[in-house]
Nucleic acid binder design. Structure first.
Length: 506
RNA sequence: GCCCCCAUCGUCUAGAGGCCUAGGACACCGGCUUUUCACGCCGGCGACAGGGGUUCGAAUCCCCUUGGGGGUACCA
């Protein structure tokens, strides 16, 4: 089915505040946002905080911050308001109760008195016997009066919706028609024992009241759609367009879960990035993330693959969203980031770099813009900001705090009877005498030394690099020296040379 | 157990019956460049899950099998 969009498009992203923004959710937001922008519609953010037990305190703040970082701003929702608020479900309890009463009175819903443990036991038994389980509606169900009395007596009473015994077909904008047999759905809970609505109920009421036209969500909700449509019919609500997105997995086919991080930490590995915030702290650009996740399940139909948000808005469409589950390829992401870093203007790159420095609490904090620009320039071709940081880490260490990598020292300085040290000591006076300490002058000097000694660049550059950084990795040798400055360079080389005298193999 | 969804290179995908001896990107493998790490350039390897149909003709349509995924909560 192709749906012609006539009403103004209103879409929403409805996270529950239980942590950071997951990379999979980020794709869902992106597609919603793009759909809204594409049609000049409205993108709404709604916080589904109906689960008191799992609520995480600063979660909302974190999610909002990472959404903004991605550039996915919302037209209605927390912090910006709107005509259809409040946008926190916990603030809409009266609204849900009103519709709940209607359902109760019209006989579409009823109070249910079973204890949770009782139900769990039945489910477990069915599972153990490899049988399917379904809640059986009491016959007759408790009356409203009985339900209210039980609740007044302090019993954990819930309200269940009478699921009609008809097959329900929804025409998904991505998947096409999907029919769910009636006998698969039970009378599900719409109000919990604590008085909060369940997701299904709150979601349906809010989507109606907030005039949502398109529901774009994860595939885990596909089957819920039956419940939602049934609820809409009972309530006399319109049914919005539905579109369900495929799932994103790790390369090994497992789910991308925060558990991966815990597991890695326990095993002493660096935790993989799972939430948007993880990628941000790891030194990825928002442009990269947006571009990469856009291509997970959507394609422009041709060979182009680099798009910013504006460009995506221009070409995005639900008709080009695929049905297949995707795997998250970190190698490709890295490659995208490398490309994006070269595509951005120096100003934009600097801005992004500073965000990285801030959120990652980098030792580069407090560095002035000119130096940061210079660092970015000398590290051109980098894959992530984190890599830049590692490459220029030597700049932010005290001269006497350089840690020498034993392997680098052996390979570059000590090997062959300390020929690296020899090269160093021969170069040192030339550096002392260098009139102007610029990258160009340094480069010229090193070339000159190489020529005089009839050796390759590496024979001079590498010993210098190890002497002043402690490692074999840094920007070009002339940039490395220029960045460090004459005084600190000389100090480090001298200290390195002095240290060599106590080494047995020299 | 039951229900639903999905199926092209290792990965993301293009492909909407003949344009396909299946295209691109990442990865991988060679080579070039090179002061380290990256970057860059050139070349190569590499897929229509299997089986039945439909059709003059199928990666494209239908069925079955297999495989993968989702759901089956007083979570969302």
């Amino acid at each position: 089915m192709t749906s012609t969009v006539t009403d103004p498009v209103r879409v929403r992203f409805a996270p529950s505040p239980t942590g950071y923004l997951h990379i999979g959710s980020a794709r869902t937001v992106l597609f919603n946002w793009l759909l809204a922008r594409k049609h000049g519609g409205t993108f709404i953010l709604r916080i589904e905080d109906t689960d008191q037990a799992r609520h995480v305190e600063d979660s909302v703040q974190k999610i909002l911050d990472d959404l903004r970082w991605l550039g996915l701003t919302w037209d209605e929702g927390p912090q910006v308001g709107g005509d259809y608020g409040p946008y926190f479900q916990s603030k809409r309890l009266e609204i849900y109760n009103r519709y709940l009463q209607k359902l109760l009175e019209s006989g579409h819903a009823y109070y249910a008195l079973e204890m949770p443990q009782q139900l769990t036991a039945l489910r477990d038994a069915a599972k153990a016997a490899k049988q399917s389980y379904k809640y059986v509606r009491p016959d007759p169900p408790p009356t409203i009066a009985e339900g209210e009395a039980a609740r007044a007596a302090g019993r954990p009473v819930v309200v269940r919706f009478k699921m009609p015994a008809v097959d329900i077909t929804v025409v998904d904008d991505i998947l096409g028609p999907v029919t769910l047999p009636a006998d698969q759905s039970e009378d599900f809970v719409i109000q919990k024992g604590d008085g909060y609505p369940t997701y299904h109920f709150a979601c349906v009421v809010d989507d109606e009241l907030m005039k949502i036209t398109h529901v774009l969500r994860g595939q885990e909700h596909l089957i819920n759609t039956t419940k939602h449509v049934a609820l809409q019919r009972a309530l006399g609500f319109a049914t919005p367009h539905y579109a369900h997105l495929s799932v994103i997995f790790n390369m090994d086919g497992t789910k991308m879960s925060k558990r991966d991080k815990e597991k890695a930490a326990k095993e002493g590995r660096r935790p993989p990035e799972i939430d948007v915030h993880d990628f941000r702290v790891a030194g990825y650009l928002p442009e990269t993330l947006v571009n990469y996740i856009a291509l997970l399940g959507w394609s422009p139909g041709d060979d182009r693959e680099f798009f910013n948000l504006d460009e995506l808005t221009g070409v995005f469409g639900l008709d080009r969203v695929g049905k297949t589950n995707a795997r998250f390829d970190r190698e490709k992401l890295l490659s995208f980031n490398t490309t994006w870093a070269t595509r951005l203007s120096p100003d934009r790159l600097l801005e992004a770099f500073k965000d990285f420095i801030r959120v990652s609490e980098s030792p580069m904090r407090g560095t002035d813009d000119d130096l940061l620009r210079e660092i970015l320039r000398t590290c051109a071709g980098f894959r992530t900001f984190r890599q830049v940081e590692e490459k220029v880490r030597f700049l932010f260490l005290a001269d006497n705090a350089i840690e020498y990598d034993p392997k680098a020292v052996q390979k570059v300085l000590a090997k062959n009877n300390g020929e690296g040290y020899t090269a160093l000591s021969e170069t040192l006076p030339r550096l002392r005498d260098l009139s102007a300490w610029t990258a160009d002058a340094v480069e010229k000097l090193i070339h000159d030394v190489c020529e005089k000694k009839a050796v390759q660049m590496g024979a001079i550059a590498q010993p210098l690099r190890v002497a002043i950084t402690g490692t074999t990795i840094s920007p070009s040798i002339h940039d490395t020296l220029a960045l460090l400055g004459r005084k600190r360079t000389l100090a480090r080389v001298e200290k390195c040379l002095k240290g060599s005298q106590s080494l047995p193999h020299v």
